[in-house]
């Protein structure tokens, strides 16, 4: 199958990011478990407050996205879709909470999506289909996570919190238009969390070559080939970012330069936000992108798959009353490991 395109042109009408204010330096984790004898995968990661979860973070990102949607009424949103691997309920949608809080209820469809770290781009692809087919004029797609890492595990250095929300709508109302997308999936168990388990398991170095690199390379190569584009046709390239090394390597292997990748590479400052990871990178790029510039977006979800998109920027909104992605990154309160353990509920209180 080639590149996916909707019947009518579809784009991003508005977007919004969210990152909680707490930051845990990776050095804190290294000191505790390895006496500092560890090569740090990121500088620090974001940590949610005690009153935050995927629902509350999605609500704030969604409000920011609406604030950047040129006065769109929430009641016109035909779908509220939240992609995450840390939904607060195992059974009961996050999306209805978000839909209620932004005023999109009751005549809308709502659902939660799950595909490890690509649940958010999955929701975007579905939203492109919904709007592109004419079934709805606007759909809200969110990728958001409050990721868990087992104490002492490699994931504990990077498992962050945050994500982004996108109002998907007709191209003529959009800031950036989707030119096409490719999804590439295989059954590759590199990372998982079984039902009723708090922390995920991963397959160590198997998560690299056969999982992350193979799937992203495949989806992006196919997209470029089918759309007759080359890496230099893009101003920005945003990849899923589980650490600082992987996205840079996969990007360079595909022919992208560090300058194309760096503006959307946030992992050193906020960690891996899982379903939010590539999407919040995209919001950082949209904050600075100019009309006519092209953006490559490629997610990766364990299990495994990658969604690749080509976006063409066509406008900006001025005077928006919503914090930019950098505003959230700069809003930073550093914590130590003891506070981190408390915020993550790792102490048993009763």
């Amino acid at each position: 199958m080639g590149v996916m395109k909707p019947n009518r042109a579809v784009g991003i009408v508005g977007y919004g990011a969210y990152v909680p204010r707490y930051r845990l330096p990776a050095q804190e984790v290294a000191e505790l478990w390895t006496e500092g004898n560890m090569q740090l995968p990121v500088r620090e990661k974001s940590v949610p407050g005690l009153d935050e979860d995927v629902a509350t973070m999605s609500i704030e990102a969604a409000r920011n996205a609406l604030a950047r949607s040129g006065g769109l009424l929430p009641s016109r949103i035909g779908a509220v879709w939240v992609g995450s691997e840390s939904h607060p309920y195992a059974v009961k949608p996050t999306s209805t909470i978000v839909a209620e809080a932004i005023g999109a209820t009751p005549y809308t469809t709502a659902a939660d999506w799950q595909f490890a770290c690509k649940a958010g781009t999955e929701a975007i692809q579905a939203a492109i289909g919904l709007v592109g087919s004419g079934m709805a004029d606007y759909a809200l797609a969110i990728g958001m996570d409050a990721a868990q890492g087992r104490p002492g595990d490699a994931l504990e250095y990077t498992a962050g919190a945050g994500g982004a929300a996108f109002v998907i709508g007709p191209a003529e109302a959009s800031l950036a238009v989707f030119e096409g997308s490719v999804s590439y999936v295989t059954d590759t168990p590199d990372f998982w969390r079984r039902q009723y388990e708090k922390f995920p398991e991963h397959a160590g170095r198997f998560t690299g070559e056969p999982a992350y690199f193979h799937h992203i390379s495949s989806s992006v190569s196919q997209l470029l080939t089918e759309m007759n584009l080359k890496a230099s046709d893009f101003t920005y390239a945003v990849f899923h970012q589980p650490n600082a090394k992987f996205p840079m390597k996969v990007g360079e292997d595909l022919g992208f330069t560090r300058e194309q990748i760096k503006p959307g590479l946030l992992v050193n400052e906020i960690g891996n936000t899982y379903a939010g990871s590539s999407l919040i990178g995209l919001t950082a790029v949209l904050d600075i992108a100019k009309p006519g510039q092209r953006i490559l977006l490629a997610s990766f979800g364990s299990g495994a798959g990658s969604d690749a998109f080509s976006l063409l920027v066509q406008g900006r909104r001025e005077g928006v009353q919503a914090p930019g992605t950098r505003d959230y990154i700069n809003r930073r309160t550093q914590i130590d490991y003891a506070m981190y353990a408390r915020l993550k509920g790792n102490y048993k209180l009763n």
Partner: peptide, 22 residues
């Protein structure tokens, strides 16, 4: 169930693209 509701926080900075540091 989880009970959600309003809280208030200091107004979040809104410097948009001006605060970019690439």
């Amino acid at each position: 169930m989880v009970v959600y509701g309003y809280k208030f926080r200091p107004v979040c900075a809104n410097q948009g693209a001006a605060a970019q540091q690439i």
